[in-house]
Write a protein that binds this DNA or RNA. Structure first.
Length: 215
DNA sequence: TAGTAGCA
DNA sequence: GGTT
Protein backbone atom coordinates (compact mmCIF):
# COMPACT_ATOMS: atom_id res chain seq x y z
CA UNK A 1 0.00 0.00 0.00
CA UNK A 2 1.49 3.36 -1.01
CA UNK A 3 1.30 6.66 0.76
CA UNK A 4 -1.47 7.80 -1.55
CA UNK A 5 -3.70 4.99 -0.32
CA UNK A 6 -3.13 5.98 3.28
CA UNK A 7 -4.38 9.47 2.55
CA UNK A 8 -7.15 8.42 0.20
CA UNK A 9 -9.48 7.56 3.08
CA UNK A 10 -9.36 11.22 4.11
CA UNK A 11 -10.53 12.52 0.73
CA UNK A 12 -14.06 12.60 2.06
CA UNK A 13 -15.54 12.92 5.50
CA UNK A 14 -16.69 15.41 8.06
CA UNK A 15 -14.14 17.63 9.75
CA UNK A 16 -15.23 19.58 12.85
CA UNK A 17 -14.73 23.31 12.35
CA UNK A 18 -16.15 24.72 15.56
CA UNK A 19 -19.26 24.31 17.71
CA UNK A 20 -22.02 24.27 15.11
CA UNK A 21 -19.57 24.13 12.19
CA UNK A 22 -18.17 21.41 9.93
CA UNK A 23 -16.22 21.00 6.72
CA UNK A 24 -17.79 18.40 4.41
CA UNK A 25 -14.77 17.25 2.46
CA UNK A 26 -15.45 16.45 -1.17
CA UNK A 27 -19.20 16.95 -0.67
CA UNK A 28 -19.62 18.71 -4.04
CA UNK A 29 -16.86 16.90 -5.96
CA UNK A 30 -19.14 15.43 -8.62
CA UNK A 31 -20.80 18.81 -9.18
CA UNK A 32 -17.83 21.13 -9.61
CA UNK A 33 -17.95 21.13 -13.43
CA UNK A 34 -21.61 22.11 -13.50
CA UNK A 35 -21.17 24.67 -10.75
CA UNK A 36 -18.31 26.28 -12.65
CA UNK A 37 -20.48 26.54 -15.79
CA UNK A 38 -23.17 28.24 -13.70
CA UNK A 39 -20.61 30.71 -12.33
CA UNK A 40 -19.55 31.66 -15.86
CA UNK A 41 -23.17 32.21 -16.81
CA UNK A 42 -23.76 34.41 -13.75
CA UNK A 43 -20.61 36.40 -14.49
CA UNK A 44 -21.74 36.98 -18.09
CA UNK A 45 -24.69 38.95 -16.70
CA UNK A 46 -23.26 40.41 -13.46
CA UNK A 47 -19.49 40.60 -14.01
CA UNK A 48 -16.87 40.04 -11.33
CA UNK A 49 -15.58 43.31 -9.94
CA UNK A 50 -13.21 44.49 -7.22
CA UNK A 51 -15.22 46.42 -4.65
CA UNK A 52 -14.00 49.10 -2.26
CA UNK A 53 -14.15 48.81 1.52
CA UNK A 54 -15.41 51.64 3.76
CA UNK A 55 -11.77 52.50 4.44
CA UNK A 56 -11.27 53.17 0.74
CA UNK A 57 -9.19 50.09 -0.10
CA UNK A 58 -9.73 47.76 -3.05
CA UNK A 59 -10.56 44.17 -2.15
CA UNK A 60 -8.16 41.66 -3.68
CA UNK A 61 -11.06 39.23 -4.10
CA UNK A 62 -13.37 39.91 -7.08
CA UNK A 63 -17.06 39.36 -6.41
CA UNK A 64 -20.47 38.99 -7.97
CA UNK A 65 -23.76 37.59 -6.64
CA UNK A 66 -26.87 35.68 -7.56
CA UNK A 67 -30.24 35.32 -5.87
CA UNK A 68 -32.71 37.84 -4.44
CA UNK A 69 -29.97 39.89 -2.79
CA UNK A 70 -26.29 40.57 -3.36
CA UNK A 71 -23.67 41.54 -0.81
CA UNK A 72 -21.79 44.71 -1.71
CA UNK A 73 -19.31 47.10 -0.16
CA UNK A 74 -18.33 50.66 -1.01
CA UNK A 75 -17.13 53.71 0.90
CA UNK A 76 -20.54 53.92 2.58
CA UNK A 77 -20.33 50.45 4.13
CA UNK A 78 -21.38 46.83 3.77
CA UNK A 79 -24.95 45.91 2.84
CA UNK A 80 -27.22 43.76 0.73
CA UNK A 81 -28.89 45.13 -2.38
CA UNK A 82 -31.53 43.61 -4.67
CA UNK A 83 -30.10 45.54 -7.65
CA UNK A 84 -26.56 45.12 -8.95
CA UNK A 85 -25.06 48.64 -8.88
CA UNK A 86 -22.84 47.75 -11.86
CA UNK A 87 -25.75 46.83 -14.16
CA UNK A 88 -28.71 48.55 -12.47
CA UNK A 89 -30.56 45.25 -12.92
CA UNK A 90 -31.51 42.42 -10.57
CA UNK A 91 -28.77 39.96 -9.75
CA UNK A 92 -28.99 36.74 -11.82
CA UNK A 93 -31.40 34.19 -10.36
CA UNK A 94 -29.90 31.54 -8.12
CA UNK A 95 -29.46 28.35 -10.20
CA UNK A 96 -31.49 25.41 -8.91
CA UNK A 97 -28.22 23.44 -8.71
CA UNK A 98 -26.85 26.01 -6.24
CA UNK A 99 -29.95 25.94 -4.06
CA UNK A 100 -30.13 22.15 -3.97
CA UNK A 101 -26.46 21.81 -3.04
CA UNK A 102 -26.69 24.43 -0.29
CA UNK A 103 -29.77 22.79 1.18
CA UNK A 104 -28.24 19.30 1.14
CA UNK A 105 -25.05 20.55 2.81
CA UNK A 106 -26.95 22.51 5.47
CA UNK A 107 -29.13 19.50 6.17
CA UNK A 108 -26.05 17.27 6.51
CA UNK A 109 -24.62 19.74 9.02
CA UNK A 110 -27.75 19.79 11.14
CA UNK A 111 -29.54 22.84 9.72
CA UNK A 112 -32.70 21.58 7.95
CA UNK A 113 -34.96 23.92 5.97
CA UNK A 114 -32.18 26.28 4.89
CA UNK A 115 -33.49 28.73 2.30
CA UNK A 116 -30.69 31.06 1.20
CA UNK A 117 -31.73 34.32 -0.47
CA UNK A 118 -28.21 35.26 -1.56
CA UNK A 119 -25.21 33.54 -3.05
CA UNK A 120 -22.06 35.66 -2.95
CA UNK A 121 -19.58 34.44 -5.56
CA UNK A 122 -15.94 35.20 -4.73
CA UNK A 123 -13.09 34.85 -7.21
CA UNK A 124 -9.53 34.57 -5.82
CA UNK A 125 -6.38 34.80 -7.88
CA UNK A 126 -2.89 34.08 -6.52
CA UNK A 127 -2.08 36.74 -3.92
CA UNK A 128 -5.74 37.41 -3.09
CA UNK A 129 -6.95 37.00 0.48
CA UNK A 130 -9.84 37.79 2.78
CA UNK A 131 -8.86 39.04 6.21
CA UNK A 132 -10.77 37.95 9.33
CA UNK A 133 -14.33 39.26 9.42
CA UNK A 134 -17.82 38.37 10.62
CA UNK A 135 -20.86 37.75 8.41
CA UNK A 136 -23.23 40.02 10.29
CA UNK A 137 -25.10 42.00 7.66
CA UNK A 138 -27.92 39.43 7.58
CA UNK A 139 -31.24 39.86 9.39
CA UNK A 140 -31.47 36.20 10.42
CA UNK A 141 -28.60 34.71 12.43
CA UNK A 142 -30.57 31.49 13.00
CA UNK A 143 -29.74 30.42 9.45
CA UNK A 144 -26.25 29.00 8.86
CA UNK A 145 -23.59 30.02 6.36
CA UNK A 146 -22.78 27.51 3.59
CA UNK A 147 -19.49 27.96 1.73
CA UNK A 148 -18.49 25.93 -1.34
CA UNK A 149 -14.90 25.78 -2.67
CA UNK A 150 -14.03 25.35 -6.37
CA UNK A 151 -10.71 25.33 -8.18
CA UNK A 152 -7.37 26.15 -6.58
CA UNK A 153 -6.84 25.09 -2.94
CA UNK A 154 -6.80 27.60 -0.09
CA UNK A 155 -6.33 27.84 3.66
CA UNK A 156 -9.48 28.71 5.60
CA UNK A 157 -9.00 30.70 8.80
CA UNK A 158 -11.63 30.16 11.48
CA UNK A 159 -11.47 32.06 14.75
CA UNK A 160 -13.83 32.80 17.59
CA UNK A 161 -16.44 35.35 18.59
CA UNK A 162 -13.82 38.05 19.22
CA UNK A 163 -11.45 39.43 16.63
CA UNK A 164 -8.44 38.64 18.82
CA UNK A 165 -9.38 34.98 19.31
CA UNK A 166 -6.76 32.77 17.72
CA UNK A 167 -7.84 31.48 14.33
CA UNK A 168 -7.25 27.86 13.35
CA UNK A 169 -6.19 26.91 9.82
CA UNK A 170 -8.07 24.42 7.62
CA UNK A 171 -7.07 23.28 4.11
CA UNK A 172 -9.89 23.75 1.61
CA UNK A 173 -9.94 21.88 -1.69
CA UNK A 174 -12.21 21.96 -4.71
CA UNK A 175 -15.51 20.30 -3.82
CA UNK A 176 -15.25 20.96 -0.08
CA UNK A 177 -18.22 22.57 1.64
CA UNK A 178 -17.99 24.41 4.96
CA UNK A 179 -21.13 25.00 7.02
CA UNK A 180 -21.32 26.98 10.24
CA UNK A 181 -24.16 28.30 12.35
CA UNK A 182 -25.55 28.18 15.86
CA UNK A 183 -22.82 28.97 18.39
CA UNK A 184 -20.27 29.77 15.65
CA UNK A 185 -22.57 31.71 13.33
CA UNK A 186 -20.85 35.05 14.05
CA UNK A 187 -17.32 33.75 14.44
CA UNK A 188 -14.49 35.57 12.67
CA UNK A 189 -13.20 33.83 9.57
CA UNK A 190 -11.14 34.53 6.47
CA UNK A 191 -8.95 33.08 3.74
CA UNK A 192 -5.14 33.16 3.72
CA UNK A 193 -3.24 34.54 0.74
CA UNK A 194 -3.86 32.25 -2.22
CA UNK A 195 -0.80 30.42 -3.56
CA UNK A 196 -0.13 30.25 -7.27
CA UNK A 197 -1.17 27.28 -9.34
CA UNK A 198 -3.32 26.02 -12.17
CA UNK A 199 -6.53 24.07 -11.70
CA UNK A 200 -7.66 21.73 -14.49
CA UNK A 201 -11.16 23.24 -14.42
CA UNK A 202 -10.79 26.87 -13.30
CA UNK A 203 -7.22 27.66 -14.38
CA UNK A 204 -5.59 30.35 -12.22
CA UNK A 205 -8.57 30.88 -9.91
CA UNK A 206 -10.30 29.74 -6.78
CA UNK A 207 -14.04 30.36 -6.61
CA UNK A 208 -16.15 30.35 -3.49
CA UNK A 209 -19.92 30.28 -3.24
CA UNK A 210 -21.26 31.67 0.05
CA UNK A 211 -24.93 31.09 0.72
CA UNK A 212 -26.75 33.26 3.24
CA UNK A 213 -30.29 33.89 4.32
CA UNK A 214 -30.36 37.68 4.14
CA UNK A 215 -34.06 37.95 4.89
C1' DT B 1 -11.24 46.16 10.69
C1' DA B 2 -14.40 41.73 4.02
C1' DG B 3 -8.25 47.21 4.35
C1' DT B 4 -2.78 48.23 4.84
C1' DA B 5 1.50 49.18 7.28
C1' DG B 6 4.88 49.29 10.82
C1' DC B 7 6.96 47.66 15.01
C1' DA B 8 8.38 44.73 18.97
C1' DG C 1 11.25 34.12 8.20
C1' DG C 2 6.94 33.43 10.63
C1' DT C 3 3.97 35.10 14.30
C1' DT C 4 1.54 38.16 17.34
Amino acid sequence: MGTGDLFAEFDQGIMPLAEGGVILRGFALDEVTGLFADILDIASRSPFRHMTTPGGYRMSVAITNCGDYGWITDRRGYRYEAIDPATSKSWPAMPSSFLALAQRAADMAGFPDFWPTCCLVNRYEPGAKLSLHQDKDEADFAAPIVSVSLGLPATFLFGGARRNDKARRFPLNSGDVAVWGGASRLHFHGVDTLAGGTDSLTGPYRFNLTFRKVR
